[in-house]
Design a protein around this nucleic acid. Structure first.
Lengths: 122, 122
DNA sequence: ATAACATATCATCAAGTAATGATATGAAGT
DNA sequence: ACTTCATATCATTACTTGATGATATGTTAT
């Protein structure tokens, strides 16, 4: 698990660059957490839920209605979204209202859109 | 595939919110492309490659050395990174040098880091 | 032409994950 | 207490994907 140790495989072309690149890596733990975080945005269903919540807080039932999805599907994905703290929720009687947890989510979506819009012409 | 048509399942709690949320959704096509784009960041191996390239352009061999990974693994992931235009490359003799395609990647990584650093205390 | 090398692609397999129906939990009304 | 309703969780299944060894492509040097 020590990724600062240089156990190399083949010939290195530019040792200096390799050393610098190695120093710039995050630890395996941080990298793994980042991957888990980003993975959340890598699914259409979850993206749609986030886009819906980007407008306003919604209860599970209204998320289902907005996206025309089954209850268990929505709940499953909300669970994942909760786990990485991308959404928060509050209970009000029988209903549970979900909303985006912070504005990083908005930022991330924006950067993603910018990126894919650049090759609109294709 | 028409996600603007309201085919609903159960009772809607707040019709106005649901309508607004529906209008804010992207098309299925855009959503799918976004998901494909973000999925790229949802894997530790690819994240490490991107972190390495964040420092400087590297040839495949030096990426292998930096991350201590097999050649086919690196090449496979580079292929995916190319497909979503997150990296670009240039050939120089036998070597192929990869680099980040634009600064959205840097921005995205930064936002991700900010997000996970917020709950460092856990 | 051929040998050596860097990289890409392919095929396989194991592991992960999304959708879904069924079931469980827990709140509000009767 | 019982019913209804909203949401959560569980188990199953089908699909996706990452790692890997083997092979192919293409470049340079001999």
């Amino acid at each position: 698990m020590n990724n600062n140790e240089l156990i190399c495989c083949e010939k290195i072309v530019d040792k200096e660059k390799v050393d610098k690149a190695r120093k710039n890596l995050f630890s395996d733990t941080v990298t793994a957490r980042l991957a888990i975080f980003f993975k959340i945005f890598g699914d259409s269903t979850r993206l749609k839920i986030l886009m819906a919540l980007n407008v306003s807080e919604l209860c599970v039932c209204d998320i289902m209605a907005t996206l025309n999805m089954k209850q268990s599907t929505v709940s499953q994905q909300l669970k994942l979204l909760r786990e990485v703290k991308v959404v928060k929720y509050r209970q009000e009687g029988k209903q549970v209202f979900y909303s985006l947890d912070d504005d990083h989510i908005h930022k991330i979506l924006t950067v993603g859109i910018e990126h894919i819009e650049e090759d609109k012409y294709e």
